[in-house]
Design a protein around this nucleic acid. Structure first.
Lengths: 367, 367
DNA sequence: TTGTATGCGTTATCAA
DNA sequence: TTGATAACGCATACAA
């Protein structure tokens, strides 16, 4: 009996040829029997299968990929897998991928365009069948366009690009932020601050139009959430000044804490603050505690992302909840639809969010 | 000028042959110039490179893999990427992989052996060059042994297998747990409980040997942490009974909360509890709050894993800190050492842990 | 140094 | 139904 591995280093895995020899048939027949394509007689199929079993055959996917062009692999490029948002989205993506018989290859961009470009290039060279990306820039997307041109579908996660005709899966950032701020206004707050994360390369600019502040800048989560904030404030008839709008470096909790501290030392102090993502929420929370302020007595807080810890602290935080796992799933579903040939017009898929009102928001103490 | 993509669906990417034709040289020369191997004249190299540039050539890694055998991909199989421990370890692994020019393929096992086996099989079929796995079982490891036999190095993360001769990267679970419990004993606690996560298929068994409790069962984190607990208690001269040892379903916060509730309703109530991982820590914390108990006045708590939230709650939690990112890095480093041919005897790499004493532990209120 | 020819393992085409 | 053979794209052994 030959064929089973005898020692470490016995690298060679059996091929169809080996199986064919063992079964005494041609490689073509063996291939057909193993791959379940074409016509094979029942007896030969049997012989081939037992031979395969005996040798411990399993197909070389690389060779198959070379012929078929497909690799049964997809790529996922996000800023940082250790961020709970991406980790959870990745989980959803993995689940759908596995249902489809695919495996995901992961790359972190750290929100650096060069890193992202490089990662996308590597993934294309690996001939992935599709790619989900949460792009650093929604304007500089040549690398993603190239993917599309090569026939590799792209789906954007948590971002939409005005210059790239692909599906995108995200939330209605403006509406979500608006609901958060409207809640604060409803509680009676007037001096409401916002703490956003802003990427240095696509930072928003503010313009005062007839006493009303408007934001210029690409449609990215942070910026749109500022838009939602402004929209709510305007709808509530509250004048906004730029000293209530504060931004911290993307993904940097310490900086968020620092900036939140600045925001909290404006005079008069904001009676409520809206943090636009989970990192700024955490920074804001620690800053409030560092300054010895009480929630919600001294300051109300609405955070973003319904992470576990927001219910572990006391009081539990009012947050805008989104569902990263569903976003990951949806993105994967759209990607596989495209991989399977869906040619319909690209869409923005806006996933549900909801405001979870908990104990960190209350009417302002003194007005 | 031909060759650049004209429309979506123009799938064909240029090959060395295309570049060779464009440059007016043979495929061999083009290949040598592009792959930087063999000898090529400066002028021809130039011609080839500009031709490649013009056509937008980049190598087909799949074809290269078929010849070379290597894929520049590694696998990572963990229970659940949305668990912060795995997400952070994955981050470390990604970083090292990228430095080495590799990309990781991710699979979640949900601590299910069949899922894990299948995932490993798929990864092997994809001809990954190595695999880091945090195995569901440390005894049933045939699938991992098969990988080794095929020449695919395996590194275990957060687990050690007595029946598999491969590197493993983990912490000294016994010592870490012992230090946690010793701290509680040092504070004067005697009635100390432990809340562990236990996999149903490899659950530990307890035996009373001369009035001293010993655990039987494979060397897994949870079980070893129970061992550390027992060791500390024994060293402190405290008798342990099984009613102080409680276990919850792996990865299930709700169950951990439930079990913690049971543990907290023993009479007399434990004055301190050690939770063996981040999931049970969270469950224990919510159970304590649900029952209206105060930390550390009514019950002291030592948790496991230094997650952000443990410093956001009040009081901040005393925890055993490990460094998942370093564990991920280390595992990747060992894997690449093996991939590069390191044949030295497999080792257990024990990573640093330390007890971070914060406000959730204090002497028992009344003794 | 450059070119020709061949193999990697699968799958598909074609002929028997 | 079965078998011989070509092709995917790259890298190499060998010939020129």
């Amino acid at each position: 009996m030959s064929g089973t591995a005898r020692r470490t280093g016995d690298h060679r895995r059996p091929t169809v040829a080996d199986v064919a020899r063992e079964a005494g048939v041609s490689v073509a027949t063996a291939g057909r029997a193993l791959g379940n394509y074409g016509k094979v007689g029942a007896d030969l199929r049997e012989r081939v299968q037992t031979a395969a079993e005996l040798l411990g055959y399993s197909p070389n996917v690389v060779a198959r990929s070379m012929r078929s062009g497909g690799t049964q692999s997809i790529g996922f490029v996000g800023a940082d897998i250790s961020n709970p948002f991406f980790a959870t989205a990745m989980r959803g993506l993995c689940d759908v991928a596995r249902e489809e018989g695919y495996e995901p290859i992961l790359a972190n961009s750290d929100d650096r365009l060069d890193v992202e470009r490089n990662a996308v290039g590597v993934l294309l060279d690996k001939r992935i069948d599709g790619i989900v990306v949460s792009p650093t820039s929604v304007l500089d997307v040549e690398h993603l366009r190239r993917a599309e041109e090569q026939g590799v579908p792209v789906v954007l996660l948590d971002r939409h690009s005005p210059v790239l005709a692909v599906d995108s899966v995200l939330i209605d950032n403006i509406a979500a932020a608006k609901s958060a701020v409207a809640h604060l206004l409803g509680e009676g707050h007037r001096r409401v601050g916002v703490l956003a994360s802003v990427d240095p390369v696509e930072r928003p600019e503010f313009e005062d139009v007839d006493g009303e502040l408007v934001v210029h800048g690409a449609q990215r989560p942070s910026v749109d959430r500022i838009r939602g904030y402004l929209s709510a404030m305007h709808a509530g008839g509250v004048r906004v000044t730029t000293d209530l709008i504060c931004s911290a470096a993307l993904g940097d909790v310490a900086d968020a804490d620092h900036r939140a501290g600045e925001l909290l030392s404006r005079t008069p102090r904001p009676t409520a603050i809206f943090a636009t993502d989970n990192v700024t929420t955490q920074g804001l929370y620690t800053a409030i505690r560092r300054l010895g302020l009480r929630i919600p007595d001294d300051v109300s807080l609405v955070g973003f992302d319904d992470l576990d810890w927001t219910t572990l602290v006391e009081p539990a935080l009012t947050v805008v909840a989104q569902s990263p796992i569903d976003m990951g799933r949806k993105a994967a579903q759209r990607l596989f639809a495209r991989i399977k040939g869906d040619e319909s017009a690209p869409q923005q898929y806006l996933m549900r969010t909801h405001l979870v009102v908990r104990g960190s928001t209350a009417p302002p103490h003194s007005s």
